[in-house]
């Protein structure tokens, strides 16, 4: 097994971990964190799997760069929606999904 494949498998595990957090948490900030972890997992798969032969592939590097920018855009938008929701309703969860604690 090469380093690329090793990181790709790590990426898959991160994705599933993030997916679990995304579904299971109700707090919006935690779901945004989970989304970012899922995204990082995806990116590792994209680069790692393509480089499992050992040689560097610039194409997935460019794709992941795009992906990182898309992720930060979505994160910023989601955070501001969340903050505005907090200002207007005092809640950080969606209606009907209150955090169990």
């Amino acid at each position: 097994m090469t380093g690329g494949l090793f990181y790709a498998i790590t990426g898959v595990l991160l994705f599933c971990l993030g997916l679990y957090g995304f579904i299971q948490h109700a707090h919006l900030l935690r779901r945004i964190l989970a989304f970012n972890i899922m995204g990082s997992g995806c990116f590792l798969v994209l680069v790692g799997l393509a480089q499992r032969g050992g040689q560097v592939d610039p194409v997935p590097h460019a794709l992941v760069l795009t992906g990182i920018v898309v992720a930060v855009s979505a994160t910023a938008f989601a955070l501001i929606l969340m903050r505005q929701l907090y200002v207007e309703s005092g809640h950080c969860t969606l209606p009907g999904e209150d955090e169990e604690s």
Binding site: M1, T2, L5, A8, I9, V12, L13, F15, C16, L49, R52, G53
Partner: peptide
């Protein structure tokens, strides 16, 4: 997924 990737090369 891990299993499928492990089997790849």
């Amino acid at each position: 997924l891990g299993w499928a990737l492990w089997q790849l090369p």
